[in-house]
Design a protein around this nucleic acid. Structure first.
Lengths: 252, 252
DNA sequence: ACCTGAACACCGTTCAAGT
DNA sequence: ACCTGAACACCGTTCAAGT
């Protein structure tokens, strides 16, 4: 009875994914969450439906409830799994007093930016869902990451109170810059690829020109305003923040 | 009948609503949006349903479609209406070269903060919905506000390119700080007022203590981390930014 | 002109039932 | 142990029909 009988799948339906051929469970929470992230990346948050996700996994929607408690729980799982990518890498040696906290913050900042840019549709979840505790602030909302952060700064010259202040300043820097950056990225759902309509000659364009007449500064600076300076601004603001934190650390 | 009531309609969306005969139209786009904001404020975004909103207005859900094109359009209307509160006040005299741009930015920053704090459930909409154009950056996402901003700074010492840089920096400052601040506010839906269950003695509390054992810094600094310093931090970061912008303005 | 009844396609979620 | 069929309550949205 306990022996894993290699049952061939009943071919009443089209062949879905591989069933538990070698005894591996055909579903797992991790796999579900990974697939969910994928759906969100490709089609946006509103496209993430229990039914659709099940379909993507070759399973009925109700099966998912064995691994997630609800859609809300699924979203929570997405946030957790994404944030988990910010844990210190295994290769990273244990913290040492000589470690450079500025190098660490630069590394962390770029990791978070990378995360936001590769998952622009999911990042708003990280930004806006209520953290589980008041000491978790988006986007650095995992105990482990906060622990790393505080440990690193405390071991390199910050007294602990100031390390907390630094955590707060760093969090809002990341949140502001990255949310702004991805809000300009165009990863629209665009499931309907814009039906051509000869009767409507560039309607949105007309609207804009019309409006802009009333706003001379915006009109004159349109090109400048539209320019994408996200990368340079991020680096600049980051260095600015590091200087500020350095002043904070050495203050009287 | 044709007396031009000098109403300022910003809506590029629809002007299809013509008031009913002599009696008040029982519905209007403005009224619908106002009510929608109220529902969101009291019960959260997910509670904002066409059917529920209709009920709140004493009308069937389908009636709303005469004034809004879709739920998405309704959300857009909410954003527009909230942002409209940031327009320069009527009492505000026309800009003059002698005007203090720092005073203006302080005023604007506090206006936006006030907006975020009085509508914490709706503010994420302002933060995360895709702006209509690449020169509109959350949360200052209205042509008029941007025009005011650029006009003010350009008339008080900034060259125009730097005024745009200032707009970018100011936007991400506001976004980061305010989103972080309201994410800590507890305006949870809480429609179900927590059923008392004698069998479960403070389960979440137990969880936390358990986890915290593995995170000594967080544990030691828990009180500090939980403290609400939002107001003081906002002021501090604002002054910091103003100094930075002042340096930018007078650079070489 | 404005509102509604009825209907459609689609949700999240539960649960007894299948294998 | 894991998945599914069927069902429930609830969505957004359309449209012919009422007044």
């Amino acid at each position: 009875v306990e022996t894993p009988t290699s049952t061939e799948l009943e071919s009443a339906h089209t062949a879905r994914s591989a069933p538990g051929a070698l005894g591996r469970p055909s579903l797992s929470r991790e796999q579900i969450i990974e697939n969910a992230i994928d759906v969100v990346d490709r089609h946006g948050l509103t496209a993430l439906t229990m039914r659709r996700l099940g379909q993507e996994l070759g399973v009925e929607a109700m099966s998912l409830y064995r691994y997630v408690n609800s859609r809300e729980d699924l979203l929570e799982g997405i946030v957790d799994q994404m944030i988990a990518q910010l844990h210190l890498r295994p290769g990273h040696a244990p913290l040492q007093p000589t470690d450079d906290w500025q190098a660490y913050l630069r590394w962390l900042a770029h990791r978070v930016r990378e995360l936001a840019r590769t998952h622009p549709n999911a990042f708003p979840l990280i930004a806006t869902r209520h953290p589980a505790a008041p000491w978790l602030r988006p986007p650095l909302r995992s105990l482990r990451v906060v622990e790393d952060f505080l440990a690193m700064l405390s071991s390199t010259g910050f007294n602990e109170i100031r390390a907390v202040t630094a955590y707060r300043a760093f969090s809002s820097f990341l949140l502001g810059h990255l949310l702004l950056e991805i809000s300009l990225l165009d990863t629209q759902p665009s499931s309907a690829p814009e039906p051509l309509d000869a009767g409507k000659p560039a309607a949105p364009h007309a609207e804009l020109s019309l409006d802009l007449a009333r706003f001379p500064h915006v009109k004159r600076l349109e090109a400048e305003l539209s320019e994408d300076r996200a990368a340079a601004e991020f680096e600049h603001a980051l260095e600015d923040l590091l200087n500020r934190l350095n002043r904070l650390m050495t203050e009287q």
